[in-house]
Amino acid sequence: MVLRKTLTDAEITEQRELIAGVFKMTLHAPEIARTAKPGNFLQVKAAKANTLLRRPLGIADAEGDNISLIYRKIGKGTAELAELQQGDIVSILGALGNSFDESFKNPLLVGGGMGLSPLLFYAQAHKNAAVLMGGRTSSEIFWEDIFKPFAKEIFIATEDGSKGEKGFNVALLPKLLKSGKYDGVIACGPDPMMKKAVDIAREYSVPVEVSLERRMGCGLGACLSCAIDTANGRKKVCKDGPVFKGEEVFF
């Protein structure tokens, strides 16, 4: 079923800087909170914005009437969002895009950096997911505390070895999949991480999905800013994705 998309103003109930440059914005958005599925995203802008276009942000959790977005301040649009405070209004368009496969019994979520944001929503909804997270250094593993209430198991790797195993998170993936405990992999993060996760999952014949990030204009499949080639032809990341089967994507 394709859900009706809505355009609404939502009040910020909380905005918090989790670590330097990374923010969690919680919004009162009952309709979207009730209908959104893990993998969906929103097109967001401040109600009184100086920037023109909306910014696509994955939904990080939905609880009651509220949804949260976890995002890094990387440009003018996200900087403008980061300035907003409790009580301010943002305009949201959503929920957009397709969603992850939730039919796996024992999914393994593989995430790096801000890619962990939509995976959090998955862990929260599924309740039986394990997560393999990666970051450059221990401070980027603030996600561990956020995932703890929802994830069955948490595996960690950091590039500098300051937390968990030293190296990339995907280096732990062969061992985890070899155990045979996991019947699906859901990956979101930098392209090289997702490529590696897809290669390894396929090697172990475990179904794998990835969530892609692209610059977007409309978020509705009209402007074609985010069109990509896939094994199944041209696709729009905003409308046909952002979730794709691993084997579909040309990394």
Binding site: R215, G217, C223, S225
Partner: peptide
């Protein structure tokens, strides 16, 4: 394929 510019965008 797209970039925001002051009060506009390039495609």
């Amino acid at each position: 394929r797209i970039a925001e510019t002051p009060a506009g965008m390039l495609n």
